[in-house]
């Protein structure tokens, strides 16, 4: 009997609690910086595409929503000829971001992707590519990697020493 009255009283007190519901379109929710939302392709600090078309994202994707085709530019550097994400399949798991060796593919805090036509959920490379560096500033894969792809000369990279001249006895 008392417990019934007590639960009625406690329920009444809930009238003065903070609301769990947020008035969404007027009051936007707070999304943390690491929120896994819409996928973008970023550029490095020189403004070049970071993506090297290694296909790791497409391989790790559990729902196979990423499709891309690799190609080589005049310096021999790999880039995606097309890069297509079907967001009507994407489950926003973030595996592609974890797999990416160059920080090219990133998930950003944006979920407002409603469309009237299902075909509009398929994003091509020009929709995915942004002009900035996304979450990781100052990182350029080819500045760290050893291979010369027209970004840096041999031995000019970060954490890299100039190549040893084998014919010079002074070393």
């Amino acid at each position: 009997m008392l417990s019934i009255l007590r639960s009625i009283w406690y329920t009444f007190l809930h009238a003065f609690h903070k609301r769990e519901t947020q008035g969404y379109p007027e009051k936007l929710p707070y999304l943390p910086p690491r929120y896994r939302g819409r996928i973008i392709l970023s550029r490095d600090s020189d403004g070049n595409e970071r993506c090297v078309a290694c296909n790791l994202c497409a391989a790790v994707c559990p729902v196979d929503c990423i499709a891309l085709q690799a190609a080589n530019d005049e310096n021999g550097r790999r880039y995606p000829e097309f890069f297509r994400i079907n967001f009507s399949r994407c489950i926003y798991c973030g595996f592609c971001e974890e797999a990416c060796p160059t920080y090219a593919i990133q998930l950003i805090p944006d979920f407002e992707m409603g469309e009237y036509d299902r075909q509009n959920m398929v994003y091509e490379k020009e929709h995915l590519l942004i002009s900035g560096e996304g979450k990781y500033h100052g990182y350029n894969f080819y500045n760290v990697a050893g291979v010369d792809m027209g970004v840096k000369g041999t031995g000019k990279g970060e954490n890299e020493e100039a190549p040893v001249d084998l014919k010079n006895l002074i070393h």
């Binding site: 329920t11 809930h14 009238a15 609301r19 769990e20 519901t21």
Partner: peptide, 11 residues
């Protein structure tokens, strides 16, 4: 009911 359940209800 929304008031007692920390919701907003039809608005």
């Amino acid at each position: 009911l929304a008031l007692f359940q920390d919701r907003l209800g039809p608005n």
